[in-house]
Design a protein around this nucleic acid. Structure first.
Length: 739
DNA sequence: AGCACGCCGACT
DNA sequence: GTCGGCGTGCTC
């Protein structure tokens, strides 16, 4: 008598477990009949979870006695296609992350929770027929009135989804409900995704653009895997190249995926796509409601949305007919997820394109060094757009030596004079300072005491308007101390510059001039950033002050002068990527200026005017600066000339992370085989944060294979260390910063 | 991650 | 005498 091994389904469950679990098929089903890529509900311990079927009809790896049947199969057909499942598997493998948690990243919330896929559509609202235009029943409620005016202006023929109404601020649902109760507005359901109007004219490409398009996707071609770098200075018309490439992909019957940075997915960009292509376009971004997200995702997965535009996580969207992936601003840090599964969407996009036989285009004015390195080695096609479309001159960059100069709130005489001139000429000025608050330090002049965060050991930032000290690394804040707690001398003084101080100094200096400050403090409220960006174009604010926030994507056509208050932070930093980031930042911030007939000027204050990086960047531009930085990386053996993985650990006890990482180093070094360097453990750049001590261990190897072999063999040993349960630890493969 | 089991301090 | 602290181990 033979007992055949039970055939099971292998299910990725949303738990931090390295392996998928085996289950007997749901009642009444044959294991081999359960669709791979379908969701099932299973019991794990005593909890009920939704998991994803990775394999079906396979022999179990565990004792038959331990097997439980899955409860139910939620999808008749695979929710996740084979390509996407392969991507999920690869990501779990490459980032050494539990597969169930990778699945969590790949699925929209509702589907993750087991909601059905029957496309119920999304809510839309329209004006009821024959509504009295005087709105007699809405007299005093301003928000209802604003909504009703909007509905009336656009007429009863048009229905409006949550996306359109979100422009009315956070609480638009309450006044809308009032309007529905009064019978003025009707609710209905719209099937998932309607086609965009399209219809806009297609401008003729300039020669460089045409050459790039032809080089990346020749007319009438069917796609095969290829990666391309599209290096185009700000304003050179990269988006137009993308649009033409997408047109070719659609003509070949393929889908296009466009990945953009978090702040890059603006209504303007979407409008541009929608006015070009008369097809359904699925937009996946953080502002979507759960139902909308599920809807857009399902439409894409069904192959019914030929174009999908989204941020980082959109790289996981199933696209059965994928032919083209565009990664716009590929150097942008938001493509790297910095928690849980620490994946890089650009890198996964390239893997995915290869696996699915698609073409991938990485676009940037300031490509990452990794991408440049691949392009130089001939692994990626390299296409350049050197000229700004329709504009004569790129902005002129100039260094201002501020050594031994009298500074007024960090502003040198020449900077102030230049600002004054531009304002007098009726032009707009943007001052960039990557530090919010009034001053980064508050110090006692009597004894040198300075206010530190008790949980992070770093100086607290003084916020003048709030009259409080805030830690920028945790939630801690206190009222402004009237006197030094050590020596009792009154009025500790602010030291250094923040955007708030810059604003107050400039307000005193240019009392008649409108100043607009854009940083996290002035844009905390939902919609406030959009309002302020709108205000930039109103002409009421000749002076703009901003942090990092302002350097990305937004176009300020009437800005003719950009002032960089402090370029030196990026020169002194210990992080190996600081120079790359500084070069990208300076070029990107310069790109905000002089987009029209007026040529722009960029003034950069520095104490290191002879620094080779700055000299090269100003004289020869970003590509030359990138060469310099690549040389530094080669000399120090850092990426792209090596491969890194970073183990981070934190715990409330001071020596606990270090003890853990020492144990890790002990467990890993016999496996390292001379091919992987174990650097550390060392304290993290911020050794204490939010009351927890932090340390890290860096793994470095010349090639990927031994590094990943070490991780594959070593992680189970780390899991087994007794020290491991006393710390919170995480692994970051290809870390982009060592914080 | 949950959730149980398990062995040591302050409470009805 | 119990309630509950969180260390340890398991979940197909």
């Amino acid at each position: 008598m033979t007992t055949s091994l039970p055939k099971v389904i292998r299910v990725a469950v949303p738990l931090p477990l390295r392996e998928a679990f085996d289950y007997l098929p749901p009642p009444g089903m044959d294991a081999a009949a359960v669709p791979i890529g379908a969701r099932v509900t299973v019991r794990v311990g005593r909890q009920r979870l939704v998991g994803l079927v990775c394999e079906a009809g396979v022999a179990s790896r565990v004792d038959a006695a331990r097997l439980r049947p899955a409860q139910a199969c939620l999808d008749e057909v695979p929710l996740v296609d084979a390509y996407t499942l392969a991507l999920i598997r690869f990501a779990a493998d490459y980032y050494h992350h539990p597969i169930g948690e990778v699945v969590m990243n790949a699925l929209p919330g509702l589907l993750r929770e087991g909601v059905g896929v029957d496309a119920a559509g999304i809510e839309v609202w329209r004006l009821a027929p024959a509504v009295d235009a005087s709105h007699a029943s809405v007299t005093r409620a301003a928000r209802q009135r604003a909504l009703l005016d909007y509905f009336t202006t656009l007429g009863a023929d048009r229905a409006h989804g949550p996306e359109a109404l979100a422009g009315f601020g956070d609480g638009w649902r309450a006044p809308l409900r009032q309007l529905m109760d009064k019978g003025l507005v009707l609710r209905e359901r719209r099937p998932c995704l309607a086609a965009s109007p399209g219809g806009d004219a297609w401008p003729t490409l300039n020669p460089a653009q045409a050459e790039a398009v032809a080089g990346i996707w020749p007319a009438e071609a069917t796609p095969v895997f290829a990666a391309h770098l599209l290096e185009g200075v700000t304003g050179s018309g990269k988006t137009e190249v993308y649009l033409h490439l997408i047109e070719r992909a659609l003509a070949a019957g393929r889908q296009a995926l466009v990945l953009v940075p978090e702040i890059g997915l603006t209504p303007q960009l979407l409008a541009r796509f929608r006015s070009r292509f008369a097809v359904p376009i699925a937009a996946l971004h953080s502002g979507l409601g759960d139902a909308e997200r599920r809807c857009a995702w399902l439409t894409a997965a069904a192959g019914e949305a030929p174009i999908v535009i989204g941020t980082r996580s959109a790289v996981f969207t199933p696209l059965p007919r994928l032919g083209l992936i565009v990664v716009d601003e590929e150097h942008d840090g938001s493509f790297k997820q910095q928690e849980n599964l620490r994946y890089h969407a650009r890198d996964l996009a390239i893997w995915r394109a290869r696996a699915q036989g698609a073409c991938v285009v990485l676009g940037s004015a300031t490509p990452s060094l990794e991408t440049l390195h691949h392009a130089r080695a001939g692994r990626y096609g390299h296409h350049r757009l050197r000229r700004r479309a329709g504009m004569a001159k790129p902005p002129a960059l100039r260094l201002l030596d501020i050594r031994h100069k009298r500074l007024d709130a960090g502003l040198s005489g020449p900077m102030l004079a230049a600002v004054g001139e531009r304002i007098k000429a009726g032009e707009q000025v943007l001052l960039f300072l990557n530090r919010r608050g009034y001053a980064p330090v508050l110090i006692c002049q009597g004894c040198g005491w300075l206010a530190r965060c008790p949980r992070c050991d770093v100086p607290m930032t003084y916020h003048a308007q709030a009259r409080r000290l805030r830690c920028h690394h945790c939630e801690y804040e206190t009222p402004l101390p009237a006197a030094c707690p050590e020596c009792k001398q009154v009025d500790p003084v602010p030291l250094g510059q923040g955007t708030e101080r810059l604003e107050s100094i400039l307000a005193a200096r240019f009392p008649e001039v409108g100043i607009l400050r854009i940083d996290r403090d002035t844009t905390r409220r939902r919609g406030a950033l959009a309002e302020r960006l709108e205000a930039v174009h109103s002409g009421d604010y000749p002076l703009l002050i901003g942090t990092q926030m302002l350097t990305k994507g937004h176009h300020f056509p009437s800005v003719t002068l950009v002032g960089v208050i402090d370029a030196d932070q990026g020169l002194y930093s210990v992080d190996y990527r600081a120079h790359e980031r500084l070069a990208q930042l300076l070029v990107q911030v310069a790109g905000r200026a002089g987009r029209e007939e007026q040529p722009g000027e960029v003034l950069i204050q520095t104490c290191q005017p002879e620094h080779p990086l700055l000299i090269t960047l100003l004289r020869d531009g970003y590509p030359a600066a990138a060469e310099v930085i690549l040389g530094e990386r080669k000399a120090t053996g850092m990426p792209p000339y090596s491969h890194l993985a970073l183990l981070r650990a934190e715990a409330p006890g001071e020596s606990v992370p270090d003890d853990f990482l020492n144990a890790v180093a002990g467990a890993l070094s016999p496996l390292a085989g001379g091919e992987v360097d174990l650097l550390g453990p060392v304290p993290a750049p911020m050794p204490r944060r939010a009351g927890r001590y932090r340390a890290q261990l860096l793994l470095r190897a010349a090639t990927r294979a031994p590094l990943h072999r070490l991780l594959r063999e070593g992680l189970p040993r780390i899991d087994a260390l007794p020290e491991a349960r006393r710390v919170r630890w995480s692994l970051d493969v290809d870390p982009v910063d060592l914080y």
